[in-house]
C-alpha cells in the first residue's frame, strides 16, 4: 500500500471519525466544521475535475457554487410561500426536499456550465482564466442587481430542507448527508480519472495538439469535463446554502472562486482526495488564525505564498510524493 492510498484512507475515515467523536463529546460546532470541510471539499473535487484532469484553470467556479445555492434559496422560499417558481411553459412549484432541490441545482449548474464552457473554451491559457473570472463577476453583479430574490441582501432559508428519514437540523445527520454526497463525487472522480474519457482529458492537458492529431474532438471532451465539474460544484453550493441556511450574492463572488481553487492547489492538483485535505486545512487555519488575529488572512496569504513558491504539488505532493499519472 503506497502513501497516497494511506493518506486517502486517513482523510476519508478521519472526517467521519472527527464528526463522530464530536457527536459523542457533544460538540455540535465541530460537527458543523466537519460538514463544512465535506461540502467545501466537494466543491474542490468538482473544480479538480476541470483543473486537475483537464488543465482548465477556471477562475469562475463560484458561479456554479452560487447557482446551486440559489437553487436552494429560490425553491425553498417558494415552498414557504406556496407560490410556483414558474408557470410557463410548465409549472414548477417550490420544494423543500433536498433530492428534488439537488436535481434542480444539477440541471441549472449544468446549463450554466454548458454556456460558460462553450464560450470560454474557445480560448485557452490565460485568456481562459480571465474569461471565467469575468463570467463569474457577471453572475455576481446580476445577483446583486436582480431584486426578485433578495438582491444584495440574499435569501434566508428558515428551515433546513428535508431529506427522507433524516432530521437534517441535527448537525450529525446533515453531516452524514454531505459526507455521502462527497463520497459519491470522489467515486465518480476516481472512475472518470481512469476511464477512456478521463485519460483522453488528461492527455489534452499535457499536449492538446497530439490528442487532436489522433482524431479526438478535444473541444467536446473539455466541454464535457467542464460541465461535469460545474455540476459537482453546483451540488456543493446547494449543500452549502443548506448548511448556512442563507444564500447571498457573496456565494458568487470571485473570492469564492479563489478559495475553491486554493482547496485544490493546497491539497495537490489532480489528486482525488486532495481538495478535501485542502479544504480541511483551510477550515482549520480559518478557525485557528481567526482566533489569533482579526487580520488572519495576512497569515493565510503568507502560508499560501509559501506553498506555491516552495511546496510544489501541494500537501499531497509533500506527503505522498509525485503523482503517478500527473505529468
Amino acid at each position: 500500500m503506497n502513501r497516497e492510498l494511506l493518506l486517502n484512507f486517513a482523510i476519508g475515515l478521519g472526517l467521519p471519525l472527527v464528526a463522530g467523536v464530536a457527536l459523542l463529546l457533544d460538540e455540535p460546532f465541530v460537527v458543523t466544521l466537519a460538514t463544512r470541510v465535506a461540502i467545501l471539499g466537494l466543491a474542490g473535487v468538482g473544480l479538480n475535475l476541470a483543473l486537475g484532469l483537464g488543465g482548465l484553470v477556471s477562475f469562475g467556479h463560484a458561479v456554479f457554487f452560487g447557482i446551486g445555492g440559489y437553487a436552494v434559496g429560490v425553491l425553498a422560499s417558494h415552498a414557504q410561500l406556496y407560490t410556483p417558481v414558474m408557470t410557463w411553459p410548465f409549472e414548477i412549484s417550490g420544494s423543500s426536499s433536498m433530492p428534488a432541490i439537488w436535481l434542480v441545482a444539477i440541471v441549472a449548474s449544468a446549463l450554466a456550465g454548458l454556456l460558460i464552457g462553450a464560450l470560454s473554451l474557445r480560448t485557452s491559457g490565460v485568456y481562459f482564466i480571465m474569461i471565467t473570472l469575468a463570467f463569474g463577476q457577471m453572475a455576481y453583479y446580476f445577483a446583486i442587481s436582480w431584486p426578485a430574490y433578495g438582491g444584495e441582501d440574499g435569501l434566508s432559508i428558515y428551515v433546513r430542507n428535508s431529506f427522507p428519514r433524516l432530521n437534517t437540523l441535527v448537525p450529525f445527520d446533515f453531516f452524514v448527508v454531505a459526507y455521502c454526497v462527497l463520497l459519491c463525487a470522489i467515486l465518480l472522480f476516481s472512475r472518470v480519472a481512469i476511464s477512456p474519457f478521463g485519460l483522453a482529458l488528461n492527455a489534452t492537458r499535457q499536449n492538446l495538439a497530439r490528442v487532436q492529431s489522433v482524431g479526438i474532438e478535444t473541444y467536446r471532451l473539455q466541454l464535457t469535463a467542464f460541465v461535469l465539474s460545474a455540476v459537482i460544484t453546483g451540488l456543493a453550493g446547494a449543500l452549502y446554502a443548506d448548511l448556512n441556511r442563507y444564500v447571498s450574492p457573496s456565494m458568487l463572488s470571485w473570492t469564492i472562486s479563489g478559495e475553491i481553487m486554493i482547496f485544490v492547489i493546497l491539497g495537490g492538483v489532480g489528486r482525488t482526495w486532495a481538495p478535501v485535505l485542502g479544504a480541511a486545512v483551510f477550515v482549520i487555519l480559518e478557525q485557528w488564525l481567526g482566533g489569533v488575529s482579526e487580520y488572519w488572512q495576512i497569515f493565510l496569504g503568507v502560508i499560501l505564498l509559501a506553498v506555491v513558491l516552495f511546496a510544489r504539488g501541494g500537501l499531497y505532493g509533500m506527503i505522498a510524493g509525485e503523482a503517478r499519472h500527473h505529468g
Partner: peptide, 20 residues
C-alpha cells in the same frame, strides 16, 4: 499560470488585510 494565479491571490490577501 495556475501557480501565478494562486501566488498573486495570496498577495491580494496580504495587501488587503495589511492595508486594513
Amino acid at each position: 499560470h495556475l501557480d501565478q494565479v494562486l501566488a498573486t491571490f495570496a498577495l491580494i490577501l496580504i495587501f488587503s488585510e495589511g492595508t486594513r
